[in-house]
Design a protein around this nucleic acid. Sequence first.
DNA 1: TTTTTGTTCGTTATGGATAAAAAACGTCTC
DNA 2: GAGACGTTTTTTATCCATAACGAACAAAAA
Lengths: 324, 324
Amino acid sequence: MKPNTVFKRAYNRGLARLGDYAIASDVGSEPSWSQALAVSRTTVRAIFSAFAAGGLIAYDGRRKVLLRHPVAADYYPEVETEQVGAVVEKQFMQWILHGDCKPGQQINALELSRQFGVSASAMRDYLNRFPRYGLLERRPSGSWVFKGFTEDFAEELCEVRSMFELRSALRFVSLADEEPAWAELSRIGNDHLALLEEAESRFTDFSALDERFHRCINDASRNRFIVGFYDVISLIFHYHYQWNKRHERERNIAAMREHLTYIDALQRRDAAAVTQSCNAHMATARLTLLASIQGVRETPDPGRAWPFPGRLASGERPQTRSRH
Amino acid sequence: MKPNTVFKRAYNRGLARLGDYAIASDVGSEPSWSQALAVSRTTVRAIFSAFAAGGLIAYDGRRKVLLRHPVAADYYPEVETEQVGAVVEKQFMQWILHGDCKPGQQINALELSRQFGVSASAMRDYLNRFPRYGLLERRPSGSWVFKGFTEDFAEELCEVRSMFELRSALRFVSLADEEPAWAELSRIGNDHLALLEEAESRFTDFSALDERFHRCINDASRNRFIVGFYDVISLIFHYHYQWNKRHERERNIAAMREHLTYIDALQRRDAAAVTQSCNAHMATARLTLLASIQGVRETPDPGRAWPFPGRLASGERPQTRSRH
DNA sequence: TTTTTGTTCGTTATGGATAAAAAACGTCTC
DNA sequence: GAGACGTTTTTTATCCATAACGAACAAAAA
């Protein structure tokens, strides 16, 4: 049956929100919470009931007054707040990128579902949604074949990416001055400068900035297929880089420099310079991705099981792979 | 539970195959039938059991001898041989294309499933597979929004199609002589000539030929994203033209002429001519699709003249996008 | 030995059940 | 009367059951 992860996640966020109120004060109406937590009022009512049962609030006629502030023990464990779909996605991407499966290999959905600890239906559901990425293919018999996160895949991905990005960038140049994209681009440029200043300490924030930048450009295409394709890029890069931290700092700094050149060309509306800087950046991204794949594929140190912790223990280094 | 449509379809094909045998002769082994009907031996055994139960064959030790030839009443109705997925797709595309559904409208999956006479699970399953076409979008709440088969959609589709097709065509030109694609292109060219000869009577066959031609070109890209994108094109065109037979003959003849020019340019490996003929054809295809959409959406005026010339009338600008 | 058949087991496609969540609809209060 | 609340109705997420289908294997026949 349907899991109440929506409730639990909203409940946790609701606990945090209780901190904004003083003891004995009214915490506000159900609709306002519905809006704030982005869930239906039905769920808000369930949360309030739980708050009341836990002695956090008390009903006083129509008012709901805060009795005490929440403590750590009030929260649901993080792990219980994940949707099955998200769990499957995470596990599946790990399975793919960790690379126990060879290109062309048939996928046993049932065994995978057991391995991931989800039902066969959930697995099927996920696989159904996945094939648009071109990594999976459906056999006529109904089973699935993993096409492989190969160099070919990366090459083809990058080829289309380059086409789309250049097209979008050139269209960006012809946007009217009052388009909000210009302001966003300007902000992104400033954020690059700020991040470069602190590159030593905060360079991992680059990933989010990178996505923001390229989405900003791709959005200018006003083409749902181009914009949608960036979801694939985003997914692949997101997961891939998560397991390839090698030379991350140098890589990111170089990418930021390229971005700045690129942004400058856009702002000058210099089509030739945009073309050049865009192509240059795409070429770098391609090389990075390819190198990254080889890094995963090569020398799989068999002595080391992949240390997928359910949750990283504190003090544990996040996501390093010592074989690099 | 799982429907036995595979069995029924194979059974019908098996009945037809029984006609090849003489009364009282051995109809052959299970493996040979498994191969011929492209189903597993398990299914063949089920079919043979049904044949025996229906008095069509009799087991004589290890031999299976034909008792009588099948008659019309032996066949399962065609309708029962369709997979649920196929039924949903057909109904859904029909609903979209002639439908009263407006762009941006929320889709009620449960009601649709009732309307189509399938289970909610099947509907959900289908919707999960569908969104890659960019026509549907998932709301965070889990429901679906129909983005609309609008002119914008068609424009964006055609834009990407043009990019991909040109890229593929230019790569086609650089294929080595011994690549089988050249032979296929040559056959396709001949089939065009043959079809033009009989255009009066067989012009509906053009649809299949058109797909074969463009797939042949797109395959040259050797890029799974480009090749995969043609599935979207194919689906849209397939279903759309099915309900827009207006001016079909003129449309098809014009397209075939353009194809022949295009093919000739490819065979001469003349990149400039390829670029020109490809772009011209893409522009025509775009106009055809747009007109076709308007034909569905607007008052279907059967008397109206075909509003798009096979070749662009002089002075008409190709590929204008009024919103830029 | 090679092919065919009987049998068993594992996997997939679909429908159905159920609790969660959202939406809709009144009623009530300030 | 606008917004808040209580209640009912509808829709969704997930799991499960089951028959269909496929694949592998052993025994039997050619």
